[in-house]
Simulated scan of single mutants.
Amino acid sequence: MKRIFPALCALLLLTACGPDLPPEDSERPQIVATVFPAYDFARSAAGELADVTLLLPPGAESHSYEPTPADILRVQRCDLFIYLGGESDAWVDTILSAIEPRGDVLRMIDCVDLLEEETVEGMQGGHDHEEGHDHLGEVLSMDEHVWTAPRNAAAVTRIIGQRLALLDRSNGEAYAAGAEAYALELEELDRDFAAFFDTLPDRTIVFGDRFPLLYFAEAYDLDYYAAFPGCGAQTEPSAATVAFLTRKVREEGLPAVWYIEFSNHLVADSIAEAAGVETAQFHTCHNVSRADLEAGATCLSLMRANLETLREHM
């Protein structure tokens, strides 16, 4: 957060567009999204009718992201700016309070009903193991990872389509159609996940990592255990947390311990080794690698890959 102020000062020195910025008089609507899900939903709705920019570089961590002056200029000039509105992009509020965006602003967390992120049994922070204090059920914050439930992703996509239709009324039907087509695919994915989980006698899953999948777990009635909450800053779990998760894997007879993208998965590896099982990645779609971006990855394709991985490891 501290480095945003110098970036804002540097912005005042920019008197012309950089080579990677669209001209101010561009006829195509300019959409800027902070994170990959917002970018993916917007480009699906817009098709070739608008320019969609992903602000967060591929592979970057949104919690520690430091926007450049060019990034701030994009936010200020765009016709529609889409961001999460949660802890991971709290830096956006600093930008928006310092500039006057010329366009519309949409927070993804305003598009669906929110869930409260809570500590669960075994989670780092759920117990003070040394003093014996119990913090289970403690509300940490509102969970921002709303897109991880496909039906939520569909709802956000439709709202983005509506906003684009208002911005560019001459192409309103095309935006609505693009958004609806993608939303229907996401709803089909939701049915496929539900059908898969309906075949399982036990819906327990263990993450040796952060757990930014509360909406996914709620959608399919999963029992989950994890080392850290979704927006947890911790990276080193206590011995008691590792022991608890290892015991859960053994007791439940689980075939895998899960981790999320861009994780070093050391905690998951440690638990899996102790329990004698495999590890597997669940891609939350929060961000993607450059290779995935260039290959045309979408939230839909990544979540379908997750479904196949679940079929192999549950």
Rank of each mutant, 00 (worst) to 15 (best):
I271T: 05
F196K: 13
R169G: 08
L14F: 03
D202M: 10
D128E: 14
A46M: 06
L136T: 02
P57Q: 10
V52R: 02
L310K: 11
L55A: 05
A177H: 11
L21R: 04
A155W: 00
M108R: 06
N171M: 07
P6Y: 08
F262A: 09
Q162L: 06
P237N: 08
I160R: 11
S62T: 01
R169A: 15
G86Y: 05
E251P: 15
M123I: 09
T34D: 09
E273P: 01
A98P: 01
A268K: 06
E236I: 07
T279W: 03
R28S: 14
W91F: 10
F5M: 05
A195S: 09
A7T: 14
I159Q: 14
P22E: 11
V277L: 13
V277A: 10
S263T: 10
P69D: 05
L106S: 08
C9P: 03
E252S: 11
N287V: 01
P19S: 14
E308W: 00
I82G: 07
M303P: 10
E87S: 11
T246G: 11
L106P: 00
P237G: 06
C231P: 09
T235W: 00
G276F: 03
S301Y: 02
L80S: 10
F244M: 03
T68H: 05
V120F: 09
E144K: 07
L14R: 13
T284R: 08
E61D: 15
